[in-house]
């Protein structure tokens, strides 16, 4: 399992300020912490980065790799910024990952970049027509992305398919569609296709205390479906791995001695699987 550290994102205020001031300190501190917590790659999310994206991505890649011997996940919609990042990426610590292409023709040049720079590419299973309705639609889009990748000379082994995790608070049914999609993606090639998710989006919009609980349970359930990689909080995922046995026990029908834990796990699994309707206070019911 590859954890791609999620913390260097322009959405976080501290990171955004450091990016704007080109202040290496916070960036390197956060990158180092994620590496020590078990991340095998660092996500550098610079947003749409329409102005100065190329320079910003290069600065991020070199700043991170100065202190952390890991490859970078180049996360932006700006293809020029991605290419700029690929040019300075230190491949001695692993191959970079591009986040992302999709089935939208505007995103096809990303595949070309992947082939040209020997990078791996995330294929987000959305098209131009909006969000996929279920696992089957995601698999349909995945097949098109795979065909397109071959056309551009990118090996299927270098594609990570991303079924697009949505917020459980507003799109509850998608939680289980994404789990199903992971299993379906794997069957679409031999060896199985690699898969990745932006994990914490599942709990986006949920109360703070609930977020780690949902993230961890969802992670375990996705692992069981065969997930290869997750853009996530490495510290939280290390905890999830420790709690996995308990969650798996409940999933297989066993009763835990700890009644409180048992209730928490059961209720959370039921919400993820759509057996009970989500509400912010679902654990209190």
């Amino acid at each position: 399992m590859l954890i791609i550290g999620e913390k260097l994102s322009i959405i976080a205020k501290r990171v955004r300020e450091a990016m704007m001031k080109k202040d290496k300190g916070p960036i390197q501190e956060i990158a180092t912490r994620q590496w020590k917590e078990g991340s095998g790659m660092i996500d550098a999310n610079i947003g749409p980065a329409e102005d100065g994206g190329e320079e910003l991505m290069q600065w991020m890649v070199t700043t991170i790799q100065e202190v952390v011997p890991l490859p970078i996940c180049l996360d932006t919609t700006n293809a020029n910024a991605i290419e700029a990042g690929l040019k300075v990426h230190n491949n001695q610590w692993g191959r970079p990952l591009i986040n992302s292409t999709s089935n939208d023709p505007e995103r096809f040049p990303i595949l070309e970049l992947g082939a040209k720079y020997n990078a791996q590419v995330i294929g987000l299973t959305v098209g131009k027509g909006g969000l996929p309705a279920d696992a089957e639609e995601r698999a349909g889009i995945a097949a098109e992305i795979m065909a397109r990748a071959m056309e551009y000379g990118l090996p299927l082994e270098d594609i990570y398919l991303d079924p697009l995790v949505l917020q459980i608070a507003t799109s509850q049914d998608h939680a289980r569609h994404v789990i199903n999609a992971i299993s379906m993606f794997r069957e679409m090639n031999d060896p199985p296709m690699k898969t990745v998710v932006g994990l914490s989006n599942i709990s986006n919009g949920c109360p703070k205390t609930l977020r780690p609980i949902l993230n961890k349970h969802y992670f375990v359930m996705l692992l069981n479906a065969g997930l290869t990689a997750a853009i996530a909080d490495a510290h939280e995922m290390a905890e999830a791995v420790q709690e996995k046995k308990m969650i798996d026990d409940v999933l297989s029908g066993k009763t835990l001695d700890n009644a409180e834990k048992m209730a928490e796990i059961t209720k959370t699994i039921d919400v993820i699987m759509g057996k009970t309707l989500y509400a912010h206070s679902y654990l209190e019911m």
């Binding site: 608070a169 507003t170 509850q172 309707l277 989500y278 509400a279 912010h280 206070s281 209190e284 019911m285």
Partner: peptide, 14 residues
């Protein structure tokens, strides 16, 4: 919003 509807019913019963 069905989830907020459920949440409000929970808060009121709490």
């Amino acid at each position: 919003d069905i989830n907020l509807s459920k949440q409000l019913n929970i808060l009121i019963t709490q």
